[in-house]
Simulated assay, not measured.
Amino acid sequence: MIRALVLALCGLATAATAQDTAEAALRAVQQLEAASISLQEAGSGRDRISALTETVQAYEAGMAAMRDGLRRAAIRERTLTRDLNTQSDEVAQLLGVLQRMGQAPTPLLLLHPSGPTGTARSGMMLADVTPGLQAKVDVLRAQLEEVAILRQLQGDALATLEQGLAGAQEARTALSEAVSDRTDLPRRFSDDPVKTALLLASTETLAAFASSLAEIEAETGAPPAPDATALKGQLALPVDGTVLRGFGDADAAGIERPGIVIATAPRALVTAPAAATIRYSGPLLDYGNVLILEPAQDVLWVLAGLAQVFGEIGQVLPEGAPVGLMGGDLSDAQAILTESRQGAASTRPESLYLEVRDGQGAVDPATWFAYD
Rank of each mutant, 00 (worst) to 15 (best):
L150K: 10
P226Y: 02
L32A: 04
D227L: 02
A335N: 09
D47A: 08
G282R: 12
R67W: 00
I216L: 03
S36Y: 06
D47E: 02
Q308M: 03
G314A: 13
L5V: 12
V290I: 01
T17C: 07
A22L: 11
L284F: 00
A51E: 01
F369N: 08
K232D: 09
E33Q: 09
Q30I: 01
D191T: 04
T53A: 02
G164K: 14
G167S: 13
P226V: 09
V261C: 11
G221L: 01
A4I: 08
L32M: 03
A174K: 13
A35N: 03
A148R: 14
A42C: 00
S340P: 06
A276N: 11
Q308K: 12
L52S: 03
V56N: 12
M125V: 11
P238Y: 07
T229S: 15
V290E: 06
T229R: 15
A210R: 00
P283S: 00
Q308R: 12
L109N: 15
L150A: 12
T338Y: 02
S212T: 04
Q93R: 15
D329K: 11
A168D: 12
A15V: 07
Q19P: 13
Y371K: 11
P238E: 03
V270F: 05
I255Y: 09
T117R: 11
A18Q: 14
P105G: 02
D298H: 15
G327F: 00
A275H: 10
G305W: 03
D191F: 01
L5R: 15
D184F: 07
E217G: 06
A65I: 13
R78T: 02
T106L: 07
V91K: 15
V299W: 09
P107A: 03
G361R: 14
A51Y: 13
L95V: 11
P113G: 00
V91A: 14
A236R: 07
Y371M: 09
I292K: 06
A208E: 15
I149E: 05
G167F: 14
A25Y: 14
G96H: 13
R46T: 09
A321M: 10
A272G: 00
